Simulated assay, not measured.
Amino acid sequence: MKEKPSSFSIKNWNIDDRPREKLLQKGKAALSDAELIAILLSSGSRSESAVQLSKRILASASNNLQELGRLSIAQLMQFHGVGEAKAVAITAALELGRRRGNGVELERHRIVNSESAYLCFLPGMADLAHEEFWIMYLNNSNKVITLTQLSKGGITGTLVDVRLALKKALEINATAMILGHNHPSGTLVPSETDKQLTSKMKRAAESIDIKLLDHLIVTEKNYFSFADEGLI
């Protein structure tokens, strides 16, 4: 009796060995070059998995990504299991990597006090006729990773989901946050809701080792800092 060939489908692999799942669970650095290329390929052929196909493609380029980048789309398509779409995906990914290497890293703005935080928030909030709630996420050098709008409301208020704020912080490896929202009325007096939210956000952030450095109320000409006023 003829023995049935074993399945080469990645779906039949242990979940820890599947490239996509491995990236999600362990991070991009845990994957080999072949596994990363396999994600681009998405599938292999009847006789080999995407990872095996990727290893074969890499071997043809002496397992060197620079050499692989020199292969044309036509050359990539000579491999069984690689059609035009897959060849284009590999070529595009390698070109992005080349451009990234030639690029200049974005200079991150460092927050040194409440005024420097205010100047970051101001351009997006200065002349709004409604309230918006933003979060500034920082790294361990107090440099800005990103500014994110968490919610948008009416003239007198906006709802804030603490869980979404912290979820984003974990996703981008932030170690600190600064809250910011505007008062279209121009008043710089924090409401009881503002105080309660600040306290709630601080407690939640501390539970996952993220610091809440400040909460700013922003108007076009001035600001109120919870940290400067000893409210954090």
Rank of each mutant, 00 (worst) to 15 (best):
M77I: 02
Q78T: 13
Q78K: 12
F79H: 05
H80S: 10
G81D: 05
G81E: 06
G81T: 03
G81V: 01
V82D: 04
V82Y: 00
G83N: 07
G83M: 05
G83P: 10
E84W: 08
K86M: 05
A87E: 07
V88D: 11
V88R: 15
A89D: 11
A89S: 14
T91L: 03
A92Y: 06
A92G: 01
A92K: 13
A92P: 00
A93M: 11
A93R: 02
L94F: 02
E95D: 13
E95P: 00
E95Q: 13
L96V: 14
L96S: 06
G97N: 06
G97K: 01
R98P: 00
R99E: 12
R100A: 07
R100E: 08
R100Y: 06
G101R: 06
N102M: 09
G103H: 04
V104M: 05
E105W: 00
L106D: 03
L106S: 06
E107S: 10
E107F: 02
E107I: 10
R108I: 01
I111G: 04
I111T: 05
V112T: 14
V112C: 04
V112D: 08
V112H: 04
N113F: 07
N113T: 05
N113S: 07
S116F: 07
Y118A: 10
L119N: 12
L119V: 09
F121V: 11
F121A: 15
F121Y: 13
L122W: 10
P123Q: 10
P123M: 09
G124S: 15
D127S: 14
D127C: 09
L128N: 13
L128T: 10
L128D: 11
L128V: 09
L128E: 12
H130T: 13
E131A: 09
E131Y: 08
E132M: 12
F133K: 08
F133P: 09
F133E: 11
W134M: 09
W134I: 06
I135M: 15
I135W: 04
M136Y: 01
M136E: 12
M136T: 07
L138W: 03
L138K: 03
N139R: 01
N139I: 03
N140M: 06
N140E: 15
S141F: 06
S141W: 00
S141K: 12
V144I: 15
V144L: 14
V144K: 04
V144G: 01
T146E: 15
T146M: 09
T146L: 11
T146N: 11
T146V: 12
